[in-house]
Design a protein around this nucleic acid. Structure first.
Lengths: 169, 169
DNA sequence: AATTAATGATTACAAATGTAAACTTAAACC
DNA sequence: GGTTTAAGTTTACATTTGTAATCATTAATT
């Protein structure tokens, strides 16, 4: 069993995880049923993914009679966050605002959501900057064209292994 | 050459694309240099990815002498959006607000960004809902537990092929 | 008890992805 | 003009991912 706590699942495995997260404790039978419906997967297919997830240490098993009860070893929020972080690592930090704007524009939100987001934005004003420093490697974004004007602070400094614009809390 | 305009690149290919987007027109030599720096890729590796992207129709070539000048066939925003859509397809629509909240909290934003986001939020109030309808398949999220209380409208309705919470404009 | 069915484990296999060397050809240089 | 070199093409190969059948074992049924 892989204990590398790197929280990374594939698209197919994510489907399995969602069922487990929704149920807390499930049998393979239940998972199989849900995904037979949604994805038209054969039981064998679902079993394969369950097995891989157990192997990866993302699912925990508890023996109940002759079968297993599965439960999640990682939190859904962690998977969501690490996936977002990976995606945002491909985006220039200067473009993050626009990207979030896109998400916001296209989301269905509740009043409560909007309220919460407004509060966050309000708080954000405290550490807002005049120009977000670009975090791209030279050659990978346009910020490097108008050098000097804005891209001086963060530019050219962050390598592949470095932090991206979105960091874990 | 694959003309399926599905705008989907792998992680490695995305690195190539970023160089092309940054430059508009580039030679393989330039791409190779940037990624030798950033990813420590051998020239052959970068060449493979360039080749695949041309094949996929994401890169366009224009012959200059006996070499190529590469340019992007797809817009960066399109790739970002389709990637986000894919990721958000794994998240219950009721959780989208929180997910955006996470992004917002962890982003570095400029005053201008905040301004823009506030305006979007303001506009969002018009079509805000009391409770965001869950779009999960039964068995894939907790909304289905407290049935009747909130999860009645959108629930149980969206299949795998259906629209997700975030749609293309 | 013998048979059937369910469940987990093993094996399979193609396509996608990451990583790169080898080959080919035409251009640049001596 | 012959040789080195750069660029694109082809081939290679391991790993990951998606998709599933088969096998083994235990539990349930007749």
């Amino acid at each position: 069993m892989n204990t590398e706590m790197d929280s990374k699942v594939t698209e197919a495995e994510w489907e399995i995880m969602r069922v487990v997260w929704a149920q807390n404790k499930v049998t393979s039978k239940e998972i199989i049923e849900v995904l037979q419906q949604k994805k038209d997967w054969k039981p064998a297919t679902t079993k394969t993914f369950i097995g891989r997830l157990v192997h990866k240490g993302m699912l925990e098993t508890e023996t109940e009679g002759r079968k297993y009860i599965y439960s999640a070893k990682v939190k859904e929020a962690d998977i969501i966050r690490s996936s977002l972080n990976e995606l945002f690592a491909n985006i220039c930090s200067r473009d993050v605002g626009n990207t979030i704007a896109y998400l916001l524009s296209n989301a269905t939100l509740s009043f409560k959501d909007i309220d919460k987001l407004e509060k966050i934005l309000e708080r954000k004003k405290k550490d807002a900057v005049e120009e977000v420093p670009c975090n791209c490697v030279p050659g990978q974004c346009k910020c490097h064209e108008h050098e000097g004007s804005n891209c001086n602070s963060g530019c050219h400094s962050v390598s592949d292994t470095g932090q991206v614009s979105i960091n874990e809390q």
